[in-house]
Amino acid sequence: MNLHKKALFFDVDDTMYDHLHPTRDALRTVLGLSERFPYEEAYHRIRYYSDVLSAKGGLLEGKAGQDELEDMREGRFVLALQEFGVNITREQAVDIQKEYLDRQYRIEPFEGATSLMDELSSAGYLVGLITNGLEDHQMSKIRAMALENHIAAEHIFVSGTVGYAKPDPRIFEVVNERTGTLAEHCCYIGDSWRNDVAGAVAANWRVIWFNHRKAAPESEVAGVYETAASYSELKKLLLYPTYV
């Protein structure tokens, strides 16, 4: 058992890599949107609707079928883009999703991400991933970034297989149980206020909000969190005692 071992777990989407890039490229390719379009704002709304629609159907816990998954993936583009005066058909949403998926599997980690993981492992930390989504989809992204070369397979947790999805604190409890760690010895790093910060705080983990997009907190959380905007800042927080 690792009851006294310190552990660090990372989110994947928009924490290990820039999730905006494949989204922006897909919108440009299918819709021909100009450089002036507010891609980052639209990205945040697409993620919002992705979370809302997934929660309704239990998609992130692996409780829905392919039809429900496709409805969510297409619906998030339709609903989000409407807010920016761009009305698209379901057929266009299908095309955006296809382009987006193709680019999802041609991604690279943020600068310093994998080297930090290696340094943490060398320093004696248990290092892993906790990500929302379906197993095949998330693992394809993990393999695209070659993260399996830096993290043991048994330390990768995908909500669709675990049966609980962030922000449900039970996914963090499952991680503690399966890795033999304690909440007070664990830290979670993620970009999503709702899923990552609120979820990990509720599980009594240490939390670092990877806020590289300089977003504002979406709500109050009943706990303490730290903030980093780059992997160099994360390194200072995690490896240098004067920053802890």
Rank of each mutant, 00 (worst) to 15 (best):
M1L: 11
M1D: 12
K6P: 08
L8C: 14
F9W: 04
D13G: 11
M16F: 03
Y17D: 10
L20A: 10
L20E: 12
L20H: 09
P22H: 03
P22F: 04
R24A: 14
A26D: 09
L27T: 00
L27H: 09
T29V: 03
L33V: 07
R36Q: 14
F37N: 12
Y39E: 04
Y43F: 15
H44K: 12
R47A: 10
D51T: 09
S54A: 15
E61N: 03
G62L: 04
A64H: 04
Q66V: 14
D67V: 08
D67E: 15
M72C: 13
R73M: 11
R73T: 00
E74P: 00
R76A: 02
L79F: 12
L81G: 08
L81S: 03
Q92F: 05
A93W: 04
A93C: 10
R103M: 08
R106V: 07
R106W: 00
E108L: 09
E108W: 09
E111N: 07
E111K: 08
G112T: 04
L116N: 04
M117H: 00
D118M: 10
S121M: 05
A123K: 15
L126N: 01
N132M: 02
G133H: 04
L134S: 07
H137T: 13
S140I: 00
A144K: 01
L147H: 07
A153F: 10
I156H: 02
F157N: 09
G160H: 03
K166N: 04
I171T: 01
V175W: 01
R178H: 13
T179D: 05
G180Y: 08
G180T: 11
L182C: 15
L182M: 14
Y188S: 05
Y188F: 15
G190P: 08
N195M: 08
D196V: 03
D196T: 09
V197S: 06
A200Q: 02
A200M: 01
A203W: 10
W205C: 07
N211R: 01
A216M: 12
P217A: 05
S219R: 10
E220R: 14
E220K: 14
V221S: 07
V221W: 03
V221G: 05
V224E: 15
L237M: 13
L239R: 13
T242S: 15
Y243M: 04
V244R: 15
